[in-house]
């Protein structure tokens, strides 16, 4: 069966992130000049405007900042998953990212520790997702 959910829009900046995800690594763009980290990546460091940005591997540890349950499918590929859970995670390194929380429990709280897991949703795409620790 073909994968029918939206794919990442690959560009010159974000390719390393998605290639690393396939290898089970969570990357953050990193500024060698000032140490700032972020995702999604940008063409310059938003703190110091340095141009040459590189990548670091994140620990994959973070805390739950918020979560929602999507009861509407804006893409047909999500129809069979409704409701599905989207979470906001603050990574140990600082950046806040959006992902899916694999836990179905209603017993959640803000600040709960979470850890990345890698869901190979198709042959070509692995999505970093998060689970309660």
């Amino acid at each position: 069966m073909t994968y029918n959910k939206p794919l990442p829009r690959l560009d010159t900046l974000n390719k390393p992130f998605w290639a690393a995800a396939k290898e089970g690594k969570l990357l953050l763009q990193h500024c060698p000049s000032c140490g700032d980290t972020r995702f999604p990546p940008g063409p310059v460091c938003p703190k110091c405007l340095a141009g040459d940005q590189d990548w670091i591997e994140a620990s994959g540890k973070g805390t739950l900042e918020s979560w929602i349950d999507m009861h509407r499918a804006y893409w047909d590929g999500f129809k069979d998953d409704l409701p599905y859970r989207v979470c906001l995670v603050r990574l140990e390194e600082g950046p806040v990212v959006v992902s899916n929380l694999t836990d179905k429990t209603e017993n959640l709280r803000m600040g709960a520790p979470v850890k990345v897991m890698f869901d190979a949703v198709s042959e070509d795409l692995t999505l970093p997702k998060f689970s309660l620790v």
């Binding site: 990442p8 900042e65 918020s66 979560w67 929602i68 998953d81 989207v86 959006v98 899916n100 709280r109």
Partner: peptide, 24 residues
């Protein structure tokens, strides 16, 4: 950016904010 995880629409962003408000 977050389409692959199914996160889309201004309503979803406001739901995310309101959940934080409930928690905090």
């Amino acid at each position: 950016t977050w389409d692959p995880w199914g996160f889309t629409s201004p309503g979803a962003a406001h739901a995310m904010a309101f959940r934080r408000h409930m928690e905090m």
